[in-house]
Design a protein around this nucleic acid. Structure first.
Lengths: 199, 199
DNA sequence: GACAAAACGGAACAGCGCTCCGTATCGTAA
DNA sequence: TTACGATACGGAGCGCTGTTCCGTTTTGTC
């Protein structure tokens, strides 16, 4: 898949060169702005940084979620693909699950405000929630099923709630030394772990 | 402590009757609006409901947090006071901790958007975060210490991070049938529990 | 009843998301 | 090369926020 196709969406018919260029410029500008101002940075700020008008942003990315998804698509895909890989290479399914959750947490905590946006119920972020979940919940489910099947995880825990729980633990200021999301996620996973019957 | 004193703050010198009346009216109006529109409802909406101008709100409650704290002060106090009581009446410290966390979760999930506001890093909610923490972290610490001391909880978990973890698990839409904060909090507490040595 | 202090109300300003349409640019066919 | 329709662009404008500020009203007191 060529970069231009990917940025534009493969099924759309070829568009003008300036449009493709602007889309690329916007993605780059948005990525930069997200780092400093978070994913809920003012649209005008992104437009200014990219040197385009606001109309251009809304034409290419009708909702904020579209822009955020486009910026982070690669990393979400990488996370999704890491699931089966970990399951294959780790010695136990639960270890694979732990390492995959680690990956997910790393992703969230390094993106200022992304976890907050994920759980947001306004601001055009609903589609973001949906995309992350559509892509990652099945992967999480696979790992969870494997762990439960091996008797390493408590049965009855849904992938969706685990994902949201982990995501929720990552919200909030990331520069507070008193709160490390990873420690809480560890606790959560410890609670998920099923002690294997000694038989 | 008389109601008027309490609403005004006991250390302030006596103020005009209309000011006291408006403060009461505002508290009642805010409580009503919070139920329907959440704690981040527009100031104008609260002012309108109370039949006062916006200036009046800002004069009595300079920040949004001041208003929210005033509305929920009683319930926070009740929650704080329930800690030692539970520790005294429950058979084990960990059970007391569990029941206290339940109380806290109940409080959060029944207040639309309160958990979200608590972890917010903008919108004048910082003081809200501070108040909740100042009041509840010591209580949580007491329960946690008791449980750890009895060998029922893993040592090394800070009250602050537990409170924030539980609070974080409660953020987000409360009408999503796929996600029940209580289930995740259960998992978290299960991870916190230390299996008592069989000796 | 008069007067100063206290409190009130809402106009006004700034920042935001989002829309809409006149204008500029691009691709193509003559 | 030029001309022209399709496509994309830019930003003014609208509505909704939070917050401030000051002319006006109400209150308590003498």
């Amino acid at each position: 898949m060529a970069a231009a196709d990917e940025a534009r969406g493969a099924s759309a018919r070829p568009k003008r060169a300036d449009a493709v260029r602007n889309q690329q410029t916007l993605l780059a500008a948005a990525a930069e702005v997200f780092v400093t101002s978070g994913v809920d940075a003012p649209i005008r700020e992104i437009a200014k940084r990219a040197g385009v008008g606001m109309g251009t942003i809304y034409r290419h990315f009708p909702t904020r979620a579209d822009l955020v998804v486009a910026v982070y698509r690669h990393q979400v895909e990488a996370c999704a693909e890491a699931g089966p890989a970990l399951l294959a290479e780790e010695e136990s399914p639960f270890t694979a699950l732990e390492r995959w959750v680690d990956l997910f947490v790393d992703f969230l905590v390094t993106k200022h405000g992304l976890a907050d946006a994920l759980r947001s119920d306004s601001g055009g972020f609903e589609a973001l929630h949906a995309y992350f979940l559509d892509r990652l919940v099945p992967v999480c489910g696979q790992l969870l099923d494997a762990a439960a099947g091996a008797g390493e995880a408590r049965p009855g825990v849904e992938p969706y709630e685990l994902m949201r729980g982990v995501g929720n633990l990552c919200v909030g200021r990331d520069d507070d030394p008193r709160y490390d999301p990873r420690r809480l996620v560890d606790l959560l996973l410890r609670g998920l772990r099923e002690v294997r019957p000694s038989s």
